[in-house]
Structure formats: C-alpha cells, structure tokens
Design a protein around this nucleic acid. Structure first.
Lengths: 221, 221
DNA sequence: ACTTGTGAACCATTTCACAGCT
DNA sequence: AGCTGTGAAATGGTTCACAAGT
C-alpha cells in the first residue's frame, strides 16, 4: 500500500485556495475563542470570514477536522489542526530583501506577531541601512545575503525591492536555498519549478478595484 | 443607476481575472515599447508576464484587440485599448484611510506615478497627522472623511487601518459614495452587494508561501 | 429542527488543438 | 513556418442538495 504519510498528519494534497482560507479561519478563531463557547458552527466561521458554510466544512474536511451536529466544531482542536497543517514543526525563518518604505512597514507589522514565523534577517543595498536593527530585526548589506540565508537555513524570502532588482535578488535567494517567495515587485519572477511564488501587486489590485468600482462588481466578490 | 459611460468597443463582461492581467500586460508593454519593435507576439508578452501565449491572446480578444499573423500585435494600439478598458475617461480619485507605516508606504509608492489614478486625500484618527502633507498628499482628520469623500467625488477607498477599525471605516466610506475598496485589514468587510472589495492580506500570503515552501509547490504557480 | 459530511452538478477559467492567414 | 483566433475539452474550485447524526 503506497500510503504516503508526512510529519504532519494530513495525507494528501490541499487545494491551494484552501490554504489561504485556513489561515483566515485560524486568525478569526483566535479572536473569538475566549468567552465560553468552546464550539463553533460552520456558519459562524463562514459569517466572520466572508465565505459560505459549505466551503468552511469542505476546507475543514480536507484537513481531517470533524464536528458534531448540533454542537459544531471544537474551537481548540480546530486551531491546533489548522496549525499542524500551516505551520509545520519548527519556527519558519523568513528573509526580507529591500528595506524601503514597504520593507519597514512589513517589519513593523510582523515583528513578534507570529508564533511560528519570524523575519530573522533583512537586507538592503544601501550601506547606510546595514548593521542596524530596525523594528527588532537585524539588517545586513545585501552582499552577505547568500551567506546568511544559508547559515540561518531560511526557506522563505520576501522581495520588496524595485522592479529592476527583483529578478536578480530572486535568483540569489533561490541559489541560497529559499523555496518560497513573497514578491511585491511588479514583475513576474522566473524561478525553478520547485519554488513557490506568491505575488502581491498593489498597483494591479488598485486598478482592479478602480475598474470594478466603475464598471460594476461581478457576481462573485 | 449613476454614470454609465460607453467606452470604445468591448461590449460584454470582462472576466475578472482578465482585468488583473490586462493591468500587468500594460505595465510590461510600457516598459518594452521603445527600441524599435512596434509589434509584439503573444508569446513575448506571455514570457514577460509569466502566463501562456493563448491566455494572452484570449485576454486581448476579450477587449477586441487583434493582431496579424507573422507581425503580432501593435504595441501602441494595445496599450491604448487596454487603457480604454482599465482607466475610464477621467482621473480616478482615491482616498487612503490610515496613515501608519503601511499607509505612508502606499503614499510614497503611488504619489505621481499613475497618469489616471491619484490618492487625493488621506485620513487618520491621530490628530497629529491631520492637516499635513505627506508625500504630496493632503491629510485630514478622519472626522472629515465623509465630507471630503463626497466633495471630491472619490469612488475608491484604501483601508489601511487596524482590524478593529476597518469595518467602521468601510461603512462610512460606502455611505459617502465609495464603490470599491482595497482592504489591507485582516478582516472580511461587510459591504452592500454593489461595492467591490479586493483584499490584500499579507499575513495570509506569507503563511501560504511558508506552507508551499515546505510542502512543495502545487502544479500551478 | 438544526447541524455535519459529501457525492454530484455547476461554474469560471485555462489549456488544447487546429483552421485560417500572411 | 509561424503566427493569430477560437471552438471544444479539461481543470479546478464552488455550490447544491440531501442523507445521516444528535
């Protein structure tokens, strides 16, 4: 029997949109878990997260959570099951490249906020910024990037540099062993097939909003 | 039903993912239009933008662009056709709410960059920030938001406030006539059905990257 | 009566495959 | 030979509808 089991519990592939929603569910559950309700119904999660109840149930099913009718899902178990999927066993180390306005905002936003993920090093080509500590994160000259990424076993990189520099940075991060990138630069990064890239393109998003604000929202939000 | 303008050609609905890619195509075309090539092939656009050639052709077809075999698509016409769809006739005015680290980064990034879209007013609940000009944008106390949004006929709002404040701000923006929101707060905004919301959730995106960096990238990027 | 769990239908979007043009 | 334009098939994801649990 070729049953493929992994360090975490879930056996199979998790649809990629589901991962995003699980992150959402967990955050909102953390916010509501407290008063006394130890259980939630799928429709409550759905309301808070802006999705449908059956979507919630399906997502939870995928990661092997189950609830009981007329009691709902146990909050604590839900959170820990989602965490088992999303976070993996050890602290996830992240490198930030580009300490401009955006980079600093990211540092401010993230520092110390996440129990299982931390921006452990930041890099910039401006030597002014090197060897300082910004929002609790040590900054380095970009020349030392490979060395530090390797030494710290960093697997995730955040690209917050100008468009022209982004591809070069991505290449170097990948060469240093990074396997996932969050890219804020408005270019499509070319990376080997095994590396995952998520783009956040603020200009495109704003243009989309402007378009639909004018043309009328499509049926699906 | 308010302003219904009849832009050049495209008769029907444009699929919502297509809008995002058109924004991308236009930006990259602007960057490449210069040397001498007045025409591009779909596969060239595709390469630069990280999509497939047939996707490009379909997107362009939707907005009524056509190219000729063995010459490709005329760049200038492409850009102006995309612009006709995305930008609409007049300058699109945008309001920013929340002048924290992120808000300031957005102002720095956007000011004066876009020919048809401009952040014309920013708001914050901190009176320290009111009535100053940051990165060329006038800042106001949040109390005056409705008044100014209405007076300036602002149709797009950017929500860059803490989670707890986001829903209240969204309600007030919508009441003041905004029809599209770009939401950076990690909550699902409840808005009337006619208002379009695009979420940018950095934490979720990072968690997604961390997950796929660990678990292996899915087939589609 | 209200919930969960889930096969099946449905829908949007992408990709295939190829005819037609130059 | 290599491109565009586009029906048709495939894919991926969401919603429906309902059986079963409590």
């Amino acid at each position: 029997m070729p049953i493929e089991e992994n360090p975490p519990v879930h056996g199979g592939k998790i649809p990629h949109r589901t991962i995003g929603r699980l992150s959402l569910y967990r955050r909102q559950l953390g916010r509501m878990g407290g008063p006394d309700g130890t259980h939630v119904y799928s429709h409550q999660i759905a309301d808070i997260c802006g999705v449908t109840p059956e979507q919630v149930r399906r997502d939870l099913m995928v990661i092997g959570c189950s609830g009981s009718p007329n009691r709902g899902y146990p909050v604590a178990e839900l959170v820990s099951d989602i965490t088992a999927v999303l976070d993996g066993p050890e602290m996830q180390r992240v490198a930030l490249v580009g300490i401009g306005n955006l980079g600093r905002a990211l540092l401010a936003y993230f520092t110390g906020r996440h129990p299982k993920m931390s921006i452990v090093a930041a890099f910039d080509s401006d030597p002014e910024k090197a060897d300082r500590i910004i929002h609790g994160c040590r900054c380095h000259p970009v020349q030392r990037m490979e060395e530090i990424v390797r030494a710290e076993r960093i697997a995730v990189g955040v690209v917050a540099v100008p468009a022209a520099a982004a591809q070069g940075i991505a290449d170097r991060l990948v060469a240093a062993g990074v396997r996932g990138l969050l890219n804020f630069a408005p270019v499509a990064l070319r990376v080997p097939n095994s590396v995952f890239v998520e783009d956040i393109d603020v200009t495109t998003s704003l243009e989309k909003v402007a378009y639909f604000a004018r043309a009328g929202k499509p049926a699906t939000a």
